[in-house]
């Protein structure tokens, strides 16, 4: 790596002057391109096969009204939400892995997903809630669990390891409670709950997607603004503070944004595992540069979830799988590979 590996944007004396690692930027752009191409493919695929030209026409509002409805009202929200939810999960994974300084860090560490499941179960089983009520229940449950873990782990500041331990303990307790809820539920409720728990983008519409997408986008912009501080925090609190980054406050802000991103994703699609875990790692391996980490994690997450959802829809067509099952399966393989590699590294 040499200075020529940097790209300079703006003018040295102008109001805007940025320096970024060229490789990170290129990787980010290639990932974005790949995701958009896959999105185009996904819009054309299904029981009603459409050509690229037809998809394009439908997106522009031309061509037959029936095709327009299929593309714009059915397929587009699903593809957009796959990108947004995947990207949100990728970014929130990047946040947690950076804060905890561990490749196994993810929003799960602070108990969010288990808490969200508890919230959803309570709404489904005890209150027989609707789609929006289930989403709200999941949000409340997830946020409550995350807050509880944070408060229990707080002792003159937050420390990664303590967070993990407390997170595991709370998650285990909640998981036991979830099992008990499932056992005591009626068969029908239990089916609904299990379906929600698998994580799925089936039947998503603009109405259901919009609130979650808006929340995600706002949180993403805020996260990107905090990106440089996040990178500095990785050097330890002392170094970061000495450079003018208020460590504890920044950590709390980042953690809140990570939780909001996960919450928005979970509200839209239920708990989807693996993306938050793998996306930042893959992004890091591809770009090998700091500073574009968040952006690359976003695009890897978006690409992964879109790909997984594509497989979930078309692999066993006409039968549709919940996308969460696809990500769990790939995630299992990924975890095995990660552990294998780490143990090999440790023994070499």
């Amino acid at each position: 790596m040499s200075p020529s590996d940097y790209l300079y944007l703006g003018r040295p004396t102008g109001p805007i002057y940025l320096r970024v690692r060229a490789k990170g930027l290129w990787v980010g752009m290639l990932l974005a391109l790949a995701a958009l191409m896959l999105a185009g493919l996904a819009l054309g695929a299904g029981a009603l096969e459409l050509s690229h030209a037809q998809v394009w026409q439908a997106l522009l509002g031309e061509g037959p009204a029936r095709l327009g409805a299929v593309v714009r009202e059915w397929r587009l929200p699903r593809v957009v939400m796959a990108l947004v939810v995947g990207g949100a999960l990728g970014m929130s994974g990047a946040i947690f892995q950076s804060l905890i300084r561990n490749p196994l860090g993810s929003p799960d560490v602070i108990g969010f997903n288990t808490g969200a499941y508890t919230g959803a179960l309570v709404t489904i089983i005890l209150l027989q809630g609707s789609y929006f009520e289930i989403a709200t229940g999941a949000l409340v449950g997830g946020l409550a669990a995350a807050l509880l873990v944070y408060l229990l782990a707080y002792r003159r500041g937050i420390q990664g390891f303590r967070l993990i331990i407390v997170g595991i303990a709370i998650s285990a307790m909640l998981a036991a409670f979830n099992t008990w809820l499932m056992i005591s539920a009626s068969l029908e409720s239990a089916m609904t709950a299990a379906l929600w728990g698998a994580g799925s983008l089936n039947g998503i519409t603009w109405d259901k997607a919009l609130p979650s997408a808006l929340f995600s986008l706002v949180a993403m912009v805020l996260t990107l603004l905090l990106g440089r501080r996040m990178a500095l925090l990785e050097m330890g609190d002392d170094s970061a503070s000495a450079l003018g980054v208020p460590a504890e406050r920044t950590r709390l802000q980042l953690m809140s944004l990570g939780v909001v991103l996960t919450a928005a994703a979970t509200a839209a699609a239920g708990p989807i595992s693996f993306i938050a875990l793998a996306a930042p790692q893959i992004a890091q391996r591809l770009s090998r540069s700091h500073g574009t980490a968040l952006l690359c994690a976003f695009w890897v997450g978006a690409l992964l979830l879109l790909l997984a959802d594509y497989c979930a829809q078309h692999l066993f067509a006409p039968r549709q799988l919940p996308v969460g099952i696809v990500t769990v399966s790939i995630g299992g393989l990924y975890l095995v590979w990660l552990l294998f590699r780490q143990s090999r590294l440790a023994s070499s």
């Binding site: 040295p12 002057y17 940025l18 320096r19």
Partner: peptide, 15 residues
């Protein structure tokens, strides 16, 4: 990274 305190959001680098 030592330059961080002298930089801002839009001017992240300077001569």
């Amino acid at each position: 990274r030592g330059r961080y305190p002298h930089q801002s959001l839009l001017r992240q680098w300077s001569p």
